[in-house]
Every structure is written in structure tokens, then in C-alpha cells.
Nucleic acid binder design. Structure first.
Lengths: 102, 102
DNA sequence: GTTCGACCAGATCACCCTTGTTCATGCAGC
DNA sequence: GCTGCATGAACAAGGGTGATCTGGTCGAAC
């Protein structure tokens, strides 16, 4: 799913025109990045937490040549999903039971 | 930073009332979850990709008791940030140069 | 007021991360 | 609406890193 489809979903939710939903999507994404840049972390209850993580330099390897190299330290944005959207998958053996229950 | 602050940023961006921005934030977050559920992944160019990742069951351990246990298979939502928001930190040796340049 | 998130402990395994290319697609501008 | 540009995905291999378990409480957020 790409941004266009997401905009359609947002438009369906907000009920307004797609152009408005598109602006809303951009505004939210930009605000998240802004918040991460400013505060270092953005916590959205029930959704997850975006946080800027500093990664130490560490030894890496060029997968093409196999040559060892040093991956420089970098800052990236990590996302920790809220517990609400972690779903425990039923074990394979229970799938039959689930199917029977369902 | 919490959801309220994010809403304020979005409101400042959209220019509308905060109540409207709050609805927009909820709509976007909900749409992302909806998209992940539907399609398995949501790609936002310049921001990142949300994708549902299936994690196999694996042996774990209760950190309190040290007792071994099996972590059941689960599905979670992972976020891969776009290359644009990965920032390479200057090496320590360059910090002096940066300081000198700055 | 209620619920949700963070924290911490220790051990372990999955996965992320590098390079570099190309192609295709998505996005945005005209 | 079309085109152009930019960005994402995939692959290959290996090692380091972090995510993960529980759980109770406190504080903040909703």
C-alpha cells in the first residue's frame, strides 16, 4: 500500500475531499519527524513510539566483496509498536481448535 | 513528546483548529494500522515503511526468575525508516574539524 | 479516574546493516 | 494527464546489536 491508498483511507475517515486528506497525511508525517527531531521521541498511545536512536559505529562488511569495513555511527528513527498492535499468533496445533471454535 | 504536542504541530501546519488536527492525527494513524492489516505493508515515500512482520516462536527466558520459556509466534508492526531520515553522525575525529569549521 | 507506557534485569536468537546496481514505480510538478 | 526524477526493493554474507520474555509500580496521559 502506498501513500495514495493511505490518503484515500484517511479521506474516507475524515469525510472530506482527498486533497484535504493528503494535506493531513503530510502534516502528520511531518509533525512526527519534527517531534522526533525536537524532543527525540514521539509517543502515540495505542499506536507506538517513534524515537531517534543513536547507533554506535561498528564493524561491517561489504556483502559484495566480503571486504571488512567500519559502519559509521548514525542516528535513525526507530518505532516501537504499542502492545495493542502486537498480536500473538496461535500455534499451528491450535489452528484446528480455533477453526473448530470459530 | 506526546500526542497532544503532535496535534499542536499538525494544527500549526494545517492552520485549522486543534480539534480538527486531532481528528486528522487519529485518522492517519488509524489508516496506517488499517493499511498494515489489509495489505501487510504501508510505504510512505520520504518517511518510511510500516510492515507487519511475523515473528517465529523462539526460546526465551524470564529475566526475573531466569526460567526458560517459549516466546510464542507473534505478528508485530515494524517500521523501516526512509534513507532520508537516517543521518550519518560525523566521526569523533571529525568533530574537531566540524568545531573548527563552525 | 483508569489505563497505558516506561523501566529493569539477563540471556539468547533473529534480524538488521553494510555495498552497489538497476529497474520499476511512486510521487510530484508542469 | 504525462513525464521526469527520485526513491524503494532485492540480493549476497556475516557479525554485532537489539528486541524479546515477565511484572509490578509509578506516573502521566487520556
Amino acid at each position: 500500500m502506498n501513500k495514495g491508498d493511505l490518503v484515500e483511507l484517511v479521506a474516507a475517515d475524515l469525510g472530506g475531499p482527498r486533497s484535504h486528506a493528503e494535506k493531513a497525511v503530510r502534516a502528520v508525517l511531518d509533525a512526527v519527524l519534527e517531534g522526533v527531531e525536537r524532543d527525540g521521541s514521539v509517543t502515540l498511545a495505542g499506536f507506538g513510539t517513534f524515537e531517534r536512536k543513536h547507533r554506535e559505529a561498528r564493524p561491517g562488511r561489504n556483502p559484495r566483496t566480503g571486504e571488512a569495513l567500519v559502519i559509521p555511527a548514525s542516528s535513525t528513527v526507530a518505532f516501537r509498536p504499542a502492545a495493542a498492535l502486537k498480536r500473538i499468533d496461535a500455534p499451528s496445533e491450535s489452528m484446528v481448535a480455533v477453526a473448530a471454535t470459530d
